[in-house]
Nucleic acid binder design. Sequence first.
DNA 1: AACGCCGCCTGATCGC
DNA 2: TGCGATCAGGCGGCGT
Length: 276
Amino acid sequence: MPELPEVEAFGRWLLPQIRGRRLEAVTVLKPRLVRPCSAHEFSRALEGSRIRGIQRRGKSLLWDLVSPGGDESLLVSHLGMTGSWEVLSREAPLPRHAAVVFAVGDLRVVLDDPRQFGHLRLGAAAVPVLGPEPLDEAFTPERLGRVLAECHRPVKVALMDPSRLAGVGNLYASEALFLAGIDPTTPADRLEPVAVARVHGALQAILSAAVERNLRALHAHRPMLYQQDGLPDSPAEGGLWVYDREGLPCRRCGSPIHRFVQSGRSTYQCPRCQQR
DNA sequence: AACGCCGCCTGATCGC
DNA sequence: TGCGATCAGGCGGCGT
């Protein structure tokens, strides 16, 4: 699942390849991903626009575009569960689940999305309303503390709530709480400041390391973590501490990793390393 | 209001 | 070996 680090890496990787160039043709192969307008309207609105920049907000990329007439416009892309961006030569075959194709110079920029949970939307109104960015300078332990203090739900659920914290999904929420040594069921508003500081440090460490790892994967033409079948063994190489490791020995203490459901989503926890 | 949970969608995996 | 059932989950929408 593309979360903050994957989306950030896609943005940083895409921009230098296409900055200043035009979306010469926009082909919508899966119209359901394009909202709210029809595929035809969507293509017409974008074709000819120049790409001025790409920024990330949460799990979305905000494409800063300028029309041939000089009007600014914004494209908001989201990868959903299984989306990815591919940059191909014009001659290369399209990926199996190509949803939208941008012709940019001699390149094709392709949104590939097997499960079609991603989307492309137009206009500033499509910018998601989200909590603070965990990798921002302004995101201090105190800021996290305030966010969590307002939430009575389990801390794992709070971390995944996009209105409280941007970009953190199921995988990195479980991983960060393991690194911080926090029981995911602890009510968010019951964490001591010391524990909040550990969660803050774990979030920043794990997210920023994943951005760099994903960037390296993209530049090496290798799949990202979420696109692979098997995962590397050691966390240092991009392997995971607890996520998707139900029943397997904890990499720190050897206890079997416990899986349970919170708010309808799997949480992974080492029962020994993550106690209240 | 806050929170739980369903449905969208398809590939991988499970069980008979 | 084959095929249907089940699961995964971000997020919007709906029900409580």
